[in-house]
């Protein structure tokens, strides 16, 4: 049940996209997200679509997997599309029933929002699919390090992310164990209305919280035993090196950005 959650899943494959420096990849993803909002014409979306298609192809992750990532968002996707479809004002009314009306603007808006959401999810999924959590945190830490002077705890944030990622499977396993233990004593998680079910979760959450605090305490001691004293002066096993591949990728990204901007300006 809980094992189906594929939070930030990573596919360890050998592809060009996997090899791009995580710092570059994070920046590219941010850039891509901004560009999605620039591309508001059919031609723009076509360009974004082709680009996304090529990146997925290069990443070797497979389209099925990427499409799967959209599944949990199906509801939100439909919801936004429907809301936009019916509640956008406009002059050319195509169909009307009481306060609900469909206008051409509405259709365009709905399509816009839906496509943007799809591309948004696809883009960020590609990042997590092709970058190991460790590299991702490394990348984030390095990218945020210039802000450390302004008081931003970049190392601490990265460390928290590392530990959180490390403990997700452990805590999921523990949750399942507690659920089974409570079931064995007659707890009922499957029947009743929403409130009853939420209440049934309390006997799961309380032991889970207690054990998490205990784990945190033990982990802190173990980390101190291994001479952890914050990010100052720490070295790293993994050295991030910028290669020619990264510059080529940067070039491709720049061309893509220019294409989107040109389309947007109406060339």
């Amino acid at each position: 049940m809980l094992k189906d959650i594929t939070l930030g899943q990573y596919f360890p494959l050998d592809s060009v996209i996997h090899k791009i420096d995580p710092r570059f990849k994070i920046m590219f993803t941010l850039c891509y997200i901004v560009l999605i909002f620039f591309a508001s014409s059919p031609a723009g979306y076509l360009a974004v679509g082709i680009f996304s298609f090529l990146v997925i192809k290069l990443s070797k992750v497979g389209f099925k997997v990427v499409l799967k990532s959209l599944k949990p968002l199906l509801f939100i996707l439909c919801f936004t599309a429907v809301i936009n479809l019916f509640f956008t004002g406009g002059d050319t009314i195509l169909w009307q029933w009481k306060f609900l009306k469909i206008t051409t603007d509405g259709i365009i808006n709905a399509a816009n929002m839906a496509l943007r959401l799809v591309f948004l999810v696809v883009g960020s999924s590609i990042l997590t699919y092709t970058t190991s959590p460790i590299l991702l945190t490394d990348g984030i830490e390095r990218l945020l390090s210039p802000f450390a002077k302004l008081g931003l705890p970049s190392h601490e944030l990265a460390m928290m992310m590392t530990i959180a990622l490390r403990f997700i499977p452990t805590l999921l396993e523990e949750t399942e164990k507690i659920i089974m233990a409570q079931k064995a004593r007659g707890a009922d998680f499957e029947s009743g209305n929403l409130i009853r079910r939420a209440k049934a979760l309390i006997p799961v959450l309380v032991p889970l919280f207690i054990s998490s605090f205990r784990r945190a305490d033990e982990l802190a001691t173990a980390m101190e035993c291994r001479c952890y004293r914050g990010g100052k002066g720490r070295t790293s096993l993994r050295q991030l090196r910028v290669t020619s591949l990264d510059w080529i990728a940067l070039g491709v990204m720049l061309i893509f950005a220019l294409v989107i901007i040109f389309i947007n300006l109406g060339f």
Binding site: S132, E218, A222
Partner: peptide
């Protein structure tokens, strides 16, 4: 408890 001593999500890390 080995679970509470391991910090990173990859062995060599």
């Amino acid at each position: 408890n080995p679970d509470n001593q391991i910090v990173a999500s990859i062995v060599e890390e």
